[in-house]
Every structure is written in structure tokens, then in C-alpha cells.
């Protein structure tokens, strides 16, 4: 009976392991994966920060990110960018990109701020159970997504090409483009900056104090609400950075629902690196990007990346729920 049931499913080899292809494309898969992983890492940072101080999965962070993407697209298309590479001077391009970056950072930060004020703070005020927070978070995510849908429609935004990419290195027979280097370097810099902010600044100390022990922090004179707002805003700003590079890497990938799957993967990255850990977010992102890419090539279908990311998430949670670098935002000493 079971045999009869299962045989038809087994006859079609829906899963295959294309090892030669993986070996052949190993280095390009690695570099592509790192580039994508850098973006996961930037988004993961927002999850990690909020989780660190509130112990809450901010499901709406993917929408904080996607609104940043819309800001990038709208700013750049109004500046004359389109599907084909721009013809303007290099200086002008750089200026435009900076403008788009700033716009994305501001928009994402505002969305994150509003989210905190409108949705989460009232719940904190009345000490709502965790389940209530989670449901609110998912509701907020849904609300933002479909607000975008109503304003911009279901179709992806037209592609934006920021500049003509050109290869600059040749590593193991694989060309590395300037774009890939730019993205990874920018992600690393953003991460270091955030890390330093949390370790060294006064506000950062406040964030760590709240992450470690909210009650004691409040007793010591830390304004908890202010710290939480700042945490959301920082997460939003970093998501804005991620937005610029996401549009750079995937020119036509901006769609109202586009944040969702990326958000789940970014969260997986945060958990992989150790949720609540700033450096872990980037590490987890890079790892997840690379592993997902290997999986995709090995299994021969781009849909598998999502499955691979999910399986990794579950495995990490089961085997080492604290992730690679450990979970604590509070305990990362200055």
C-alpha cells in the first residue's frame, strides 16, 4: 500500500545532485553567494538589534527593507536611471547613488520608527504577552505590504541599472566585478560602524544595557523607550543601506511582496550567526548566501535556495540555537 502510494513520487527524479556543476561553478557560486549574503547580513542586522533589545521577531522588518528599495527605485528613476546603464558622468552617478542611499535610509528609518511608535509601544505599555507582539508584528508586515501593493500595484518596478559593471579581478578563473566588491565592502563597513556604535557610544551602551537587563537598565536611568526607538531606527538605516545594494544587485527585484522571503532568509542568517549579535548577523548572512548558492547549483533549481535557507534555520535552531557567535547583544563587552 505504502509502496503503491510512494512509487509515483519516486519515479520522477525531482531531486538530483549535480556535483560536477557545483565543482565547475564553485568559485563563481562562492562570490555570488557572498555578495547576496552581504545583503542578507544588512537586513539581518535589523532583526538582530530589535531581537536583542525586545526579544521580538520584528516580522515587519522585511517591509522596512522593501520600502527602502522603493525609495531607491523612485529616486533613481526620477533622476533618469532606467533599465539600460546610465550615460551620465561618473561623478553624477555617484552623487545620484548617494542621494538614493540617503533617501532609502531615511524612508526605512521612518517606517521603522512609525512601526515602533504605532504598533509596538502601546503593547509594551500594557505589558502584553509575547503572542500579542508577534501577531501585531505579522499584522504590521501585512499592512505595509498591501499598502505598497495598493499604491504601486502587483507588478515589479521597472529595472534600474546603476552603472555598467566591469570585472576587475580574476580569482581561480572566475571574474569578480567591481559591483560585487563594492557590495561586500560596503556591507562590512556598515557592520563595523554599527558594531562600533553599539560598543563605544553612550547610546550604544544604553542599547546593551537594555538588551542585558531592561529593568536594571531602567533603574540605572536609561530611558528604555528612547533606546528602543533608536534601535528600530538604526535597524531601519542599515536596512536602507541594504536596499540600495539590493536594487544594485537585482535591478528588477523590487515588488511589494519582495521583502517577505528575503526577510525570512535574513532572519535565518541572524539566527545562524547568533541572534542579538551584530557581527554574527554579517557572518550568518555571508554563510547563508554561500550555502544557499551551493544548494541551488547542486539541486539545479533556484527555488531550492529558499528551502536550503529554511532547512539551515531549523538545523541551527535544533543543534545550536545560540548560533555561531553566541546570542548576546548585552554581553558583547566594549
Amino acid at each position: 500500500m505504502l509502496e503503491l502510494l510512494l512509487r509515483p513520487a519516486m519515479e520522477n527524479d525531482w531531486i538530483s545532485f549535480d556535483v560536477p556543476s557545483l565543482i565547475q561553478n564553485f568559485w563563481s557560486a562562492t562570490f555570488d553567494g557572498l555578495t547576496f549574503g552581504a545583503i542578507y547580513g544588512l537586513v539581518a542586522l535589523g532583526y538582530t538589534l530589535v531581537y536583542g533589545v525586545l526579544n521580538l521577531i520584528n516580522f515587519a522588518h522585511s517591509e522596512v527593507f522593501i520600502t527602502g528599495c522603493y525609495a531607491v527605485v523612485l529616486v533613481l528613476s526620477s533622476l533618469g536611471f532606467g533599465p539600460s546603464a546610465p550615460t551620465m558622468s561618473v561623478g553624477l552617478i555617484i552623487l545620484s547613488l548617494i542621494l538614493a542611499l540617503v533617501a532609502a535610509m531615511i524612508v526605512s528609518a521612518i517606517v521603522a520608527y512609525l512601526l515602533e511608535r504605532v504598533a509596538y509601544r502601546p503593547l509594551r505599555r500594557r505589558n502584553a504577552p509575547r503572542l500579542v507582539f508577534l501577531i501585531t508584528a505579522i499584522g504590521a508586515s501585512f499592512t505595509i505590504q498591501y499598502t505598497i501593493y495598493l499604491v504601486r500595484g502587483a507588478n515589479p518596478e521597472p529595472a534600474i541599472t546603476m552603472f555598467r559593471t566591469s570585472p576587475i579581478f580574476d580569482v581561480f578563473g572566475t571574474l569578480i566585478t567591481d559591483q560585487q566588491i563594492l557590495i561586500v565592502v560596503a556591507a562590512v563597513i556598515t557592520m563595523i560602524a554599527t558594531d562600533q556604535f553599539i560598543r563605544r557610544s553612550r547610546t550604544g551602551r544604553g542599547i546593551r544595557a537594555v538588551a542585558q537587563d531592561p529593568d536594571t537598565a531602567t533603574l540605572m536611568g536609561v530611558n528604555r523607550d528612547r533606546i528602543i526607538v533608536i534601535t528600530f531606527v538604526v535597524g531601519g538605516i542599515v536596512a536602507g543601506v541594504g536596499a540600495l545594494f539590493y536594487v544594485m544587485l537585482v535591478p528588477s527585484g523590487v515588488q511589494y511582496s519582495g521583502g517577505f522571503v528575503l526577510g525570512v532568509k535574513a532572519f535565518a542568517a541572524a539566527v545562524l550567526g547568533g541572534i542579538g549579535n551584530v557581527r554574527g548577523a554579517l557572518l550568518g548572512g555571508l554563510l547563508l548566501g554561500v550555502i544557499g548558492n551551493y544548494g541551488q547549483i547542486l539541486l539545479g533549481n533556484s527555488q531550492w535556495t529558499d528551502v536550503v535557507a529554511f532547512v539551515i534555520l531549523v538545523l541551527v535552531l535544533l543543534v545550536k540555537p545560540t548560533g555561531i557567535l553566541g546570542t548576546s547583544l548585552g554581553r558583547s563587552k566594549a
Binding site: 504605532v118 499584522g139 499592512t143 498591501y146
Partner: peptide, 9 residues
């Protein structure tokens, strides 16, 4: 979806 998203919040 928008309505029920808002409703949840």
C-alpha cells in the same frame, strides 16, 4: 489583505 492586516494590528 490590507483590511485584515490592519485589523490584526
Amino acid at each position: 489583505y490590507l483590511i485584515f492586516g490592519i485589523a490584526l494590528v
